[in-house]
Simulated scan of single mutants.
Amino acid sequence: MEVWIGRQGERHGPYQEEQVREWLRSGQLSRDDLGWYEGLADWQPLSVLFPQDKPAPANPYAPPPLQQQAASVSFGYAGFWQRFSAWFIDLIILMIPSMIVMYLLGGMQAYDHLREQLQGGADMSAAFRDYAAATETSSLVSLVITFFYYTFFEASKWQATPGKLALRLRVTDVNGQRITLGRSAARNLVRLSALIFGLIPIICYLAVAWTQRKQGLHDLWASTFVLHGTAQEQPPQRPPSGSDHSRFTA
């Protein structure tokens, strides 16, 4: 059974029933949070839906709750090859709109002209300069598409591009939460700048191999992490104390 969670007027999920029960037992979900699954007429508190699942009694020797742990190893930082593989999947996806843009803006004609020049014995450096000038606009449009692709996907409810989703990764802030659109834009400005200078994936991704929390240059700049597990596999963020759960509507 799949269960939706309601908090602060937002709907999260769906999550598997056993996952929700486990989060209730561990205290990662409040029994006052609202829940709904197919067949229910209306949203109900989780204490009503799962009355037997209660947090364990407090243990004075237990470690701090998950909400108080900042970027712990339980998050599982994604390594270099995982992130490189996700980048490669995204690269393949982005080739589709890039090729369409190149075709519409005369890129194919520019390529045919380059080939004719090379076959005719023209100066190679001059031929490539002409090609670069002819495809400058399409290259710029492709850069803009790439920037918005990463920025919006990583700030979305999925917290990941399709490439990251395929490898079950997500982008978070230092507290393991979804990043804002502004932070995502700042993160990807570094990626865009590196791409302009032809340094991707070197400058952004090689740092992942030696930084303690597997952060690339763009992660260090924007204070972000790339973690194992999709956003849909994580409990929704606990709202500030005093929030009125009863205002949630589907």
Results as ranks from 00 to 15, higher is better:
211 T>K: 06
37 Y>M: 11
54 K>W: 03
53 D>P: 03
74 S>T: 09
120 G>F: 08
78 A>H: 07
127 A>K: 08
126 A>P: 05
55 P>V: 06
235 P>Y: 10
197 F>P: 01
173 D>M: 05
32 D>W: 02
29 L>R: 08
169 L>M: 15
190 V>Y: 01
230 T>G: 15
27 G>V: 08
11 R>P: 00
106 G>K: 11
28 Q>V: 01
43 W>F: 08
165 L>F: 03
167 L>P: 09
123 D>A: 11
15 Y>V: 01
182 G>R: 14
30 S>P: 02
106 G>W: 11
63 P>M: 12
207 A>E: 01
222 A>W: 04
247 R>P: 00
159 Q>V: 02
160 A>H: 09
63 P>Q: 14
230 T>M: 11
12 H>F: 15
68 Q>I: 00
93 I>S: 10
82 Q>V: 03
63 P>C: 00
82 Q>H: 09
41 A>Q: 15
32 D>F: 02
27 G>C: 09
190 V>T: 07
103 Y>I: 03
243 S>L: 04
136 E>K: 15
185 A>I: 07
139 S>R: 15
126 A>C: 02
10 E>H: 13
225 F>A: 00
165 L>H: 03
149 Y>D: 09
192 L>K: 03
7 R>L: 14
234 Q>D: 06
163 G>Q: 10
228 H>V: 00
237 Q>I: 06
236 P>I: 03
49 L>D: 03
23 W>N: 03
10 E>V: 12
223 S>I: 00
76 G>H: 04
55 P>W: 09
201 P>V: 08
191 R>F: 11
95 M>R: 13
190 V>F: 01
70 A>C: 00
57 P>I: 02
83 R>E: 06
139 S>F: 12
172 T>A: 05
26 S>M: 04
46 L>C: 01
151 T>Y: 06
212 Q>A: 14
117 Q>E: 14
243 S>A: 14
48 V>L: 12
218 H>I: 01
110 A>L: 04
180 T>I: 05
26 S>W: 01
99 M>Q: 14
16 Q>H: 13
176 G>A: 07
228 H>M: 05
131 Y>L: 11
131 Y>R: 05
234 Q>E: 13
58 A>R: 12
46 L>G: 01
50 F>W: 10
201 P>W: 06
167 L>E: 08
201 P>S: 07
241 S>F: 07
181 L>F: 14
54 K>A: 10
39 G>E: 09
135 T>L: 05
176 G>Q: 11
26 S>K: 12
95 M>W: 13
32 D>R: 10
102 M>W: 08
147 F>R: 10
198 G>E: 06
171 V>I: 12
188 N>K: 05
34 L>E: 07
53 D>R: 02
193 S>P: 00
98 S>A: 15
43 W>I: 05
33 D>R: 02
78 A>M: 06
212 Q>P: 00
24 L>R: 07
201 P>R: 09
152 F>Q: 03
195 L>G: 14
209 A>G: 04
156 S>N: 10
214 K>W: 01
57 P>W: 09
142 S>L: 07
159 Q>I: 03
178 R>Y: 03
245 H>P: 09
162 P>I: 13
174 V>K: 13
203 I>L: 15
95 M>A: 13
202 I>D: 00
9 G>S: 11
91 L>N: 15
